[in-house]
Amino acid sequence: MAYNTLTMEIAELSHQPVSRCFQCQKCSLGCPVAEEMDYLPHQVVDLINKNLTEKLIGSNASWICVSCKTCVQRCPNGIDIGAIHDALKNIHFQQKLPVGVKAVADFYESFLDTVYDYGRAYELGMIVKHKLKTKNFTQDMKMGLQMFLKGKIKIAPHKINKIWEVKNLFSSVKGSE
């Protein structure tokens, strides 16, 4: 069977022995967030094996995944489904495909923007950016405010000295500057 480009890209990025999967569904049974996914973990592997990966474009599964690695731990065939979800998310970002859960993609971007700017995550900057993107200002207000009042959220960012060494790592994401 000739595999389509997307299937090949997933295989290349994730390096997973998907053909060993015998659909025991242990991954999906242990997944703490499976009930919110349109394709369950074992179904994602099945779609790759059947070369039907176009169904995974815009699927919410990769974006719901919490990277808890329970599926990886329990797979009797050593398939890291987390790595497959990472590969799918990487491809969505690279090729600007429609993402399954926009709030999650926005959060990754807000987080990494601060790492790109300072070399370290800057939570306040990230929260402000994320709130502006999602326009959801009341969510988690009580918790956020309490954390702020307890001095758990740093006001000023810390920029590392050799910031260019970190920026270089972003060349594949942002292009070189």
Binding site: K89, N90, L112, V115, G119, A121, I160, E165, F170, V173
Partner: peptide, 21 residues
Amino acid sequence: DWNCCGATAGHSTSAELALGL
């Protein structure tokens, strides 16, 4: 002069960030 490990956002976005950070 340590930097952020990239956390979930890093490995979800690119393989280079996943290892490089």
